[in-house]
Amino acid sequence: MTKKLTNTYLIPYVLWIGLFVIAPLAMVLYYSFFDIQGHFSFENYVRFFTPIYLRMTVSSIGYACLITFFTLLIAYPTAYLLTKMKNRRLWLMLIILPTWINVLLKAYAFIGLLSTYGPVDTLLALSGIGRKQILFTGFSFVFVSVYLFIPFMILPIYNSLEKLNNSFVEAAYDLGASAWATFRRVIFPLTLEGVKSGVQAVFIPALSLFMLTRLIAGNRVITLGTAIEEHFLVTQDWGMGATIAVFLILAMIVVMALMGKGWLKRW
């Protein structure tokens, strides 16, 4: 009786997952085996291992690593300071708030800020450094991406820091550990779960960024995300686009497995 009931409750979830998760994934896999003329072939997979796509893969992973690294570098200390603040809720709110604004809007805001003769450029000129090309560089791409992803890194780290029992920190201190040793041997290991969730939440979307590559990086950075967009919308080579997507999905699975204890294990 109860078992039947629980099964009935499961139906909407199963339908949802089937329609919107399993089916699209299956279709991606299916399309990846067809060339541009619609013939079944493994040619897309062969093409993926040519220098063009490999270089793209390396650059995607490289940029995603850079973005994740800098996001973590900024987010961890911020989250730590946040736990020591008096009006934590307010500060947390201020950090979350920008995530409610559409990414496109934020991207355009940055175009305005970073463009030639924009405020940042002018500031550089006035400070005597001189005008610099900022927009449409790898730097601006990483900079803006880091800005966009920071809240998603801060939140899980903040949560795990909040959960961290202060008596562990005091125990380390009591046993002679300096502030740095306490951080390295106690605080960081005990908040690693939060860091892992944060890394997942940043690295995976960073791997498949596409709009920013055009708007902020001016196509100077070509990632797998850009390539997929290109194949589906411009060259109409859905097969190749789907093949790249398959590899992206594989990469995500690998990341989740590496970051352990994510939802993958629970399944």
Binding site: N165, S167, F168, E170, A171, A172, Y173, D174, L175, G176, A177, S178, V186, P189, L190
Partner: peptide
């Protein structure tokens, strides 16, 4: 003098053993 520079050690009420 901070705790890490004192020749005193504490057994905490909740033990505070490092779980990792």
């Amino acid at each position: 003098i901070p705790p890490n520079k004192r020749q005193v050690n504490t057994v905490f009420q909740d033990y505070a053993l490092f779980p990792h």
